[in-house]
Amino acid sequence: MAASASPAAGFDRRPWLLLSPALASVTLLLVIPTLFIVVYSFWLRTATGAEQVGFFLDNWEEVLTDRFYRDILLQTLRIAAISTVICALVGYIPAYFIAYTPTRHKALLLLLLMLPFWVSYIIRTMSWINILGVSGAVNSALLWAGLVDEPIQMLYNEATVILGLVHFLLPFMILNIYVSLDGIDRSLTDAARSLGCTGWQAFREVTLPLSVPGLAAGSLLCFVLGAGTYITPMVLGGPTNAMFANLVFEAIVTQLNWPLGSALSLLLLALLGALVMVYSRFLGIDQIAKSFR
């Protein structure tokens, strides 16, 4: 064995050398830009739109004390939570089916699950306008069937925002639950059945508890992604369905107030980061990585 690999010989540099490309990428593409955002958040926007360099707490004071931001943040968390719960309820069934199906074409089913990712998220979101719009497929079908006399207004409200989010997030949930279910030892359910459990009891007492890590990982992923979205409320939402990322977009793009936008984005980052840390502390973050292996 080479001397450099021996603990007795001192510091082993090989793991760091192997990690260095990843560390450099994370530092360059994530840490340094985030630090820039941190610095920006302490600057001020002047009347012309240019920044006043310095150390000002005004943006943070506004973001942390203004009721407007708190309310939109709560609305964001609520919408993300509802979307996540719907994803969990709706996503469990296909995940269970894929995991337990005896078909030889399981790989094809998984491929179908990944299919939506081949189409742009914006296009997928906008497709709902053609489905639920006044002249869309659903209204056309209802009118044709004579079930309604005039088109129903279905778009541009909180329900369509949640629908768009579920559409976007569902594959992430299914994938995580599937990975969890696929890893369960089938003999455990067989044992439960042989001890007198009904099929439902075996599912409730054995399969469901053992799939909770996947369900939790999927929920975390869906919640974090849902809470950070701004396209869906912009395309499918009405006037009062804005989410927190829309405020960041508006501060940066419309108001050209990059310092305030930086403070807002850091607040959202901190909140979602705290959630991930709590999850990691109690359930372990590695479950999410499994679904992408």
Binding site: A47, T240, A242, T254, Q255
Partner: peptide, 18 residues
């Protein structure tokens, strides 16, 4: 231009239900 900062920000709030 003299009202841009204040009005664009306030409009952003009114627009969202405030």
């Amino acid at each position: 231009n003299s009202h841009e900062g204040e009005w664009s920000k306030t409009f952003g709030r009114v627009q969202k239900g405030y």
